[in-house]
């Protein structure tokens, strides 16, 4: 970034961004807004346009329509000043198989006009250390496992201090240990002020490390916001345990909630009584204390009460469709 450009609120901002391959739109008019300092989960099923969007953001491919700003700079016009501050992993790692891991990082670092050759060796060592590859630094990449290559790809993104990291499915091919390490790495980078834009189709992963989420479906951005907002947009569920089922159903439906009987949760509340699960229509929120007060004032004996947020998975499926069909 040049000092002239104003500090932008958004690390990534697109307007009407589209990319066509032939007459099929891989990315179809998306308006991304990734706040600075956020960990932004970019969710979507296979073929929904995540990688294509990332290619557009990084200036690898030209957009058919729309505008892109990354770190306040217009892309791809200001690519030369923007990209040195962006670390990236795009569609998996790629390396020279005949070079060692460390030699690969030195090679790619030398392509960066702003990277100092003097500190190169030290930075390469440090990046390898961070992803736990120091012991394999001298080994040819040809002999690396998938997970080791993935780690090396992440090390490459970390070669210099970055303002923004764009990681396309960073945990692909990693073992559970590696997945955990990536999560904690992302958290520590985010704590240090780096904005992280991470694409994934693994919901649990996004749920665990992201503050913001965008959901792609067939090239369109169908939802975007904080993790909390996205969950809240789904149906919250209340779970009630009581012997007075009929009275309870009456009270709940007066509050606009639909109820159905469910199996009592394990470790139950007593022999008499049954469990109810109630949900309202999306966006219809009734405060839990209001529900309990209404129940109690109508003489319903509340033995157990709980509120469960909709899981992100339910929300994701409702946004992108249930099937395994890949858009194509």
């Amino acid at each position: 970034m040049t000092e002239a450009s104003p500090p932008a609120e958004l690390a990534i901002e697109t307007q009407g961004l589209s990319k066509r391959f032939g007459h099929r739109a891989a990315v179809d008019g998306i308006d991304l807004a990734v706040p600075r300092g956020s960990v932004f989960g970019f969710l979507g099923p296979n073929g929904s346009g995540k990688t294509t969007t990332i290619r557009l953001l990084l200036g690898l491919a030209a957009a058919t329509h729309g505008h892109i700003r990354v770190l306040g700079g217009e892309m791809p016009r200001q690519l030369a000043t923007v990209l040195p501050n962006v670390g990236s992993l795009v569609e998996g790692p790629a390396f020279y198989p005949f070079l060692s891991g460390a030699a690969n990082l030195r090679r790619l670092d030398s392509a960066d006009l702003h990277a100092s050759p003097r500190t190169r060796a030290a930075r390469v060592d440090e990046a390898l250390e961070r992803v736990g590859l120091s012991h394999a630094a001298g080994k040819k990449v040809r002999a690396y496992s998938l997970g080791m290559k993935q780690r090396l790809g992440i090390a490459h993104a970390l070669l210099r201090p970055r303002e923004l990291l764009v990681l396309d499915e960073p945990t692909n091919g990693l073992d559970p240990q590696g997945t955990r390490e990536v999560r904690s790495l992302v958290r520590s980078l985010s704590a240090g002020g780096t904005t992280v834009f991470v694409s994934s189709h693994l919901l649990a992963e996004v749920e665990q490390m992201c503050t913001h989420v965008g959901v792609m479906s067939v090239g369109k951005l169908v939802a975007q916001g904080t993790l909390h907002e996205l969950r809240a947009a789904g149906k919250a569920t209340i779970r009630l345990h009581t012997p007075d089922i009929e009275a309870a159903v009456r009270v709940l439906s007066r509050l606009g909630l639909q109820s159905e009987l469910s199996a009592p949760p394990p470790g139950s509340y007593g022999p008499d009584g049954q469990s109810l699960v109630s949900t309202g229509p999306p966006g219809h929120e009734v405060a839990p204390e209001t529900i309990v007060a209404a129940l109690v004032s109508d003489g319903v004996r509340v033995r157990g009460f709980g509120v469960e947020d909709a899981s992100l998975e339910e929300r994701f499926v409702s946004l992108t469709g249930e099937g395994f069909d890949i858009a194509g």
Binding site: R55, L58, G59, L60, L79, A80, L83, P84, V86, S88, V90, E91, G92, P93, A94, F95, Y96, P97, L108, D109, A111, D112, L113, A115, H156
Partner: peptide, 13 residues
């Protein structure tokens, strides 16, 4: 090899 994209986002120019 796929390294072209990493050279370009370095950015090599």
């Amino acid at each position: 090899l796929g390294t072209l994209r990493y050279l370009l986002v370095a950015p090599a120019g």
